[in-house]
């Protein structure tokens, strides 16, 4: 518990935590509500989205889908950056050395970091829900729509959001430990989340096995789970796998990322 408390204290007071959460909230509002609202009111080109689709995506009852659809790619990238920075920076600042000589076992120290990051990620998802719900209610009220509160389905979407966020957190932690620094971890993570998987999906249209592989990669699994719980209309959201299959792959990714990172942390010399 001491390790979680210590990590939470330092992450809570870390400006980067709140900057990244803030950036994500602005992004989700901008792309989820502001642009859709502007398109609905005087936009000249709504592309393949009908007015009814735009209205539906901004309805308070669909806020669960609004939360989960952003996480497979851009939200995930931000969570990955937060985790990679939180773990990788400790090598440059020398704080891992201070942590590991303070008293806790290495596995406890790592559990402390993971526990504190988990709490921050839960806060991020909760804030995303509240901010989106606030925006949805505001738009619905301004437009005079009949609206209703989200049903129990919102819990399914939130559960999926948390699992997706956990996977990206694990990925960030893994990269931070493997690269023993923040810069390379963030660079590699962003490239994977935003570029590599998309490129592989492009190649997948030519090569069947690659296409199958992309469905179960970290971003692919996240996209498929988001698609399965109603997320749509955002980059990275897919509908190739069932929700259960995608969730199982995500759990597998979390176990592998966290497991390998912890094993490395426990076994590797800190020089």
């Amino acid at each position: 518990m001491g390790s979680v408390k210590a990590e939470l204290l330092r992450l809570w007071k870390w400006p980067a935590t709140w900057v990244l959460i803030g950036v994500w909230l602005v992004m989700t509002l901008t792309f989820g509500y502001l642009f859709n609202y502007l398109a609905l009111n005087g936009g000249t080109n709504t592309r393949d989205l009908s007015q009814q689709q735009l209205i539906s995506s901004m309805q308070p009852e669909n806020v669960g889908a609004a939360v989960v659809r952003g996480l497979p790619m851009f939200g995930g990238a931000i969570i990955l950056v937060l985790a990679a920075l939180a773990v990788g920076s400790g090598y440059g600042w020398g704080t891992w050395k201070t942590t590991l000589t303070a008293g806790p076992r290495r596995v406890s120290a790592m559990a402390g970091t993971l526990g504190a990051l988990a709490i921050i990620v839960v806060i991020l998802v909760a804030l995303t829900l509240f901010v989106n719900l606030g925006a949805a209610i505001t738009v619905a009220s301004v437009e005079g729509w009949d609206w209703s509160w989200p049903g129990v389905g919102v819990f399914e979407a939130l559960g999926a959001s948390l699992l997706i966020a956990a996977m990206w957190t694990g990925f960030g932690v893994f990269l931070g430990v493997v690269t023993k620094g923040p810069a390379l971890a963030v660079g590699l993570g962003l490239m994977w989340a935003i570029v590599t998987e998309n490129l592989l999906r492009g190649v997948g249209s030519l090569l069947g096995p690659v296409e199958d592989l992309t469905k179960v990669l970290p971003g692919g699994s996240a996209g498929n789970l988001a698609g399965a719980v109603g997320g749509s209309g955002a980059p990275g959201v897919l509908t190739d796998l069932s929700g259960t299959t995608a969730a199982l792959f995500l759990v597998g990714h979390v176990v592998v990322f966290v497991g390998v990172a912890t094993l490395l942390k426990v076994r590797r010399d800190l020089v």
């Binding site: 001491g2 390790s3 408390k5 210590a6 204290l9 330092r10 007071k13 870390w14 400006p15 600042w93 020398g94 704080t95 891992w96 050395k97 201070t98 942590t99 000589t101 303070a102 008293g103 806790p104 120290a109 402390g112």
Partner: peptide, 23 residues
Amino acid sequence: IEGPGFYPYLSGRDNLRVHAARR
């Protein structure tokens, strides 16, 4: 060991509080 390893964005007091929690 080889110079102090603390969080640059925290105050001296908060850094010690973090360390105290770990210990």
